[in-house]
């Protein structure tokens, strides 16, 4: 039965990692669904958020979970301001300009972090970093279990926001019908910036959930964002449910292919899926037909 236990543990680990992947993909898919642009600064923003958690812990002795309540509004505000006062004015209403501006931003953020922190890989020490929860023969890392449930809570809150509040409805309205939204009194620029802020806030939460078990260096975000792109395509561009399900699938695929093909080939499964989805279902699992 040992083999089955290993499989189960790989599955559980995959699901837990996948939930955090989903959280990162959530921000990406939300911005894509509303602004119809890929935010190339997504990975760099995640890196910045992880360094923020690192600084909060090592300088101010703030626990990463406590940091969620501070960094989430901070990153929402930063995301809002960057979209409203940098990306939007610089784009002149042209989508390809937005791509270039976000790409430029990612280069600036990465190199600022490189200048400030050097290229060393860093991690934080928390007392619960290696604690485990035992379920039968399964040993689950406590921070990962926390991250798993927290990711679902965040996705649920985001869904509630979009479904129930006026701001959320305005976000969905702007996503499909800008002119109609403006004529209903919705400030489209404000809603764009709110959406961007929400994307950044998701990353701040993801960073707080990741840091107890993960490390950070100025390029770390890229690894996550490549996976997040795959999830967004797999789940369907712009779909919240798609990001969640896609994240879990990708987490499990990565973990199982790591188990069967060896750790270094773990990511092959992800990109196989990416190619297969593009070939056979380009709109993704939950994507609307074009």
């Amino acid at each position: 039965m040992l083999k089955f236990d290993i499989f189960l543990s790989a599955l559980a680990n995959g699901l837990m990692t996948g939930a955090v992947y989903a959280l990162i993909a959530l921000g990406l898919t939300l911005v894509y669904g509303v602004l119809h642009i890929i935010n190339f600064a997504h990975g760099a923003t995640l890196t910045a958020a992880m360094f923020a958690v690192f600084v909060a812990h090592s300088v101010f002795k703030i626990d990463p979970y406590l940091a969620i309540v501070m960094l989430t509004p901070l990153f929402f505000g930063l995301g809002y301001a960057v979209q409203r006062f940098v990306i939007n004015p610089a784009s002149h209403g042209n989508d390809s300009n937005i791509l270039l501006v976000t790409l430029g931003l990612s280069i600036i953020i990465e190199n600022a972090l490189l200048a400030g922190f050097r290229s060393d890989t860093r991690s934080i020490d928390v007392p619960y970093g290696f604690s485990v929860i035992e379920i039968g023969n399964l040993f689950l890392s406590t921070p990962k279990v926390v991250a798993f449930f927290a990711s679902f809570v965040v996705a649920g809150l985001l869904w509630l926001l979009l479904a129930r509040t006026d701001t959320g409805k305005a976000i969905r309205a702007v996503a499909r019908e800008k002119t109609g939204a403006a004529l209903s009194g919705i400030n489209v620029d404000h809603i764009y910036a709110v959406t961007f802020g929400l994307g950044a806030a998701c990353l701040a939460i993801a960073a707080c959930l990741l840091m107890p078990t993960f490390l950070v260096n100025p390029r770390i975000g890229n690894a996550f964002v490549l996976v997040a792109f795959t999830i967004v395509v797999l789940g369907g561009m712009g779909s919240i449910a798609g990001a969640l399900v896609g994240g879990l699938i990708i987490g499990v695929v990565e973990s199982l292919s790591g188990l069967y093909f060896g750790e270094s080939l773990g990511q092959i499964g992800i990109f196989l899926i990416f190619i297969l989805v593009l070939l056979f279902r380009p709109t993704g699992l939950f994507g609307a037909k074009a």
């Binding site: 006026d166 409805k169 305005a170 969905r172 309205a173 996503a175 499909r176 019908e177 002119t179 109609g180 939204a181 004529l183 209903s184 919705i186």
Partner: peptide, 15 residues
């Protein structure tokens, strides 16, 4: 018309 096609009739009116 420029209604919001991805939203319900009620949500359109609420907006």
């Amino acid at each position: 018309r420029k209604i919001f096609p991805n939203m319900s009739v009620r949500e359109n009116l609420e907006l």
